[in-house]
Design a binder for these strands. Structure first.
Lengths: 165, 165
DNA sequence: CCAGTGTTGCTGATACGTCAACAAAAGTGG
DNA sequence: CCACTTTTGTTGACGTATCAGCAACACTGG
């Protein structure tokens, strides 16, 4: 693996652009969420699946499956969110190990307040700049890359960069 | 801004895919770098511009401009890298405030050793899955989004997610 | 020369993510 | 039923990122 084929001009340009976009877009969106709702991107990521589930409650394992977080990360973050009154932990009836994470009233209020602004920002900074065809093309490419990633480089829970969601 | 147009089916799919890719791809690449060179993605991001500059040395300000980091982040990270012997700080001749960051011999060895494997991984997980046309299409789309981002949402140094580079 | 202003980099406090180690419960095969 | 393994969630330690505040310097107009 001493001397692999280097990136050519066009590839290098794409790579730099991609890295930069991945740095800037999530950052701007997180700031937007945080500024007008006090939630972090991580908070948002946790609250979204909860808000979509029947009781506003999910087992930690399910939550992790949705957002692809490390066990430890979720545990720590839920503890912090609990301290802020956004969620509560309850014990799981069917499985003695399990932990249920339930959204509080104030948690639901937070996500309900934050979502519209976030979707609007998503449009303004992303979807408004894409044609319908481009939406489909990007989806196809990303899914292809993701599929390959999971076939090979996949790890268990997949710690990783933050997701605004 | 109470009720913005929600994301339709296809848009939501793209968004989820994008978030997931942004979480997984950088994570896999960072692990790859770290595993076979002991460098973190952040180390790599710092060392690349240094390795491309004439003396292996840049003023902190320039370095920040290249990688779009916060002042504080760079300062902290350079301190840690200095402790590990990858770079050294020197004072800037022309500007009394300035700080020069210089790559050490061992720093250059590290990046030289890490780069080929990283480029190979970049190919395996990204470029090998794209056609030539797709490379150009993606570049065009990303640049459009980035340009809009900098026109509006731009902040100063731009703290943001990590870049593997 | 000076006061005012912006820039540059550093630091300490705090929040966050990752890792290794752990405990408890559940599953599994004898 | 009993050892053994796996799954699940928690914790503490550590490295890292962000934020507010600071000090030193540079630049500008008077």
């Amino acid at each position: 693996m001493a001397k692999p084929r280097w990136l050519d001009e066009r590839e290098a340009l794409l790579w730099r652009t991609w890295l930069r976009l991945n740095q800037e877009l999530p950052s701007v969106l997180e700031q937007q969420i945080s500024r007008d709702s006090g939630l972090s991107g991580a908070d948002y990521a946790v609250l979204v699946p909860l808000s979509e589930s029947p009781e506003g409650m999910l087992r930690a394992r399910e939550l992790r499956r949705e957002i692809l977080w490390d066990r430890s990360r979720l545990s720590h973050h839920v503890r912090r969110m609990e301290k802020r009154g956004l969620v509560v932990r309850e014990e799981c009836a069917e499985d003695g190990r399990g932990a249920m994470v339930r959204m509080t009233v104030s948690g639901r209020a937070a996500i309900t307040g934050a979502a519209p602004g976030h979707v609007a920002a998503t449009r303004r900074y992303f979807f408004d700049l894409l044609s319908d065809e481009e939406v489909d093309e990007l989806t196809a490419v990303f899914e292809r890359v993701l599929a390959n990633l999971e076939r090979n480089g996949g790890r268990e829970g997949g710690p990783g960069g933050d997701a605004v969601r």
